[in-house]
């Protein structure tokens, strides 16, 4: 690649940077999302701070009490405090979401990078694997994984992760191709940097940065999927509280006790909405800075 080309590409990148959307500060929605997510993380790490009542303590005589000052979210069919169960359900739900997206990125990352760095033959092979992953709807793929691995929270996370890894593999491959043919990588080569240094200091950070918004968006999606599978009875074991399992356990009481489905449902919706808003915000920011 000639020096002129490098300068041209640098100029294009520069122009893109300045033509990108005018950078605005985060709006109210982003702050609200951050606040909600902070509460969610608090609930996941120290649930006892938010909900001092034991989520497993049954009291059949006070079953199906509507929301009140004593029980903010009412009580369930066994008289357990629904607020406490929703709060204590945060940790497994969030962990399953995080583990799923980590699996998705790990599988997608290995495939995508192999395609970029492994040469033409590997690229073709990976493209076929990705095609296969795409041929199955993600949830079907997840169900197959659960059928093979058995139902538990860990296999649930792996299943959801593998089910959604195809898209990530494709994004990482595309991003890797853009970065590895970019001007600054060519410049780094011309400066005589060792290949390993180029990979770790130039290529990987530039691939990873746009992944942050994807990661944020992905957790939200994975929580929805994982709670969906958990709703089908493929997640945690009773009596553990987990949002999808809470929904599943209370679904037949909807007409009788609306609070048992509304609150865990709202938690799933609010959490994934907050993650989506934050992810979109981060995406807009990174797109503005990194468009090449």
């Amino acid at each position: 690649m000639s020096g002129v080309a490098i300068i041209e590409q640098a100029a294009v990148a520069d122009a893109a940077l300045h033509q990108g959307p005018a950078r605005r500060g985060p709006g109210f929605a982003v702050y609200a999302s951050c606040f909600i997510l902070a509460l969610v993380v608090l609930a996941a790490v120290w649930p006892h701070v938010l909900a001092p009542t034991d989520p497993y303590d049954i009291d059949p005589t006070s079953a199906f009490l509507p929301p009140s000052s004593a029980h903010w979210f009412g009580t369930d069919q066994s008289g357990r405090d629904a607020f406490s169960r929703v709060i204590h359900g945060t940790r497994p739900s969030l962990l399953i979401g995080l583990l799923s997206i980590a699996t998705a990125l790990a599988v997608g990352g290995i495939l995508g990078l192999a395609a970029v760095l492994g040469g033409r033959a590997v690229d073709h092979a990976v493209a076929r694997v990705i095609d296969v992953l795409f041929a199955f709807p993600g949830l079907i793929l997840a169900l197959i994984c659960i059928a093979i691995l058995g139902a538990s929270p860990v296999t649930l996370a792996i299943a959801v992760g593998v089910g959604s890894s195809g898209g990530y593999a494709r994004i990482i491959r595309a991003q890797g191709l853009i970065v590895s043919t970019s001007g600054y990588v060519a410049a780094a080569r011309m400066l005589g940097h060792a290949p390993r240094r180029i990979l770790f200091l130039t290529i990987l950070p530039n691939i990873a940065r746009p992944l942050l918004p994807l990661f944020t968006l992905g957790i939200g999606q994975c929580i929805v999927w994982a709670t969906g599978l958990s709703f089908l009875g493929l997640g945690v074991q009773p009596p553990e509280a987990e949002w999808g399992a809470l929904l599943a356990d209370s679904r037949s009481y909807t007409a009788l006790a609306w609070w048992l489905t509304v609150f865990p449902g709202a938690m799933i919706a609010v959490t994934s909405l907050s993650l989506t808003i934050l992810g979109r915000y981060l995406q807009a920011r990174f797109d503005g800075r990194d468009a090449a």
């Binding site: 497993y56 303590d57 049954i58 066994s78 493929l234 009596p239 356990d249």
Partner: peptide, 18 residues
Amino acid sequence: YASTQPADLALYEQLQAT
């Protein structure tokens, strides 16, 4: 069974607790 009716499962959870 994963197909256990929700009411039965809720009963087993109460047995578990006592």
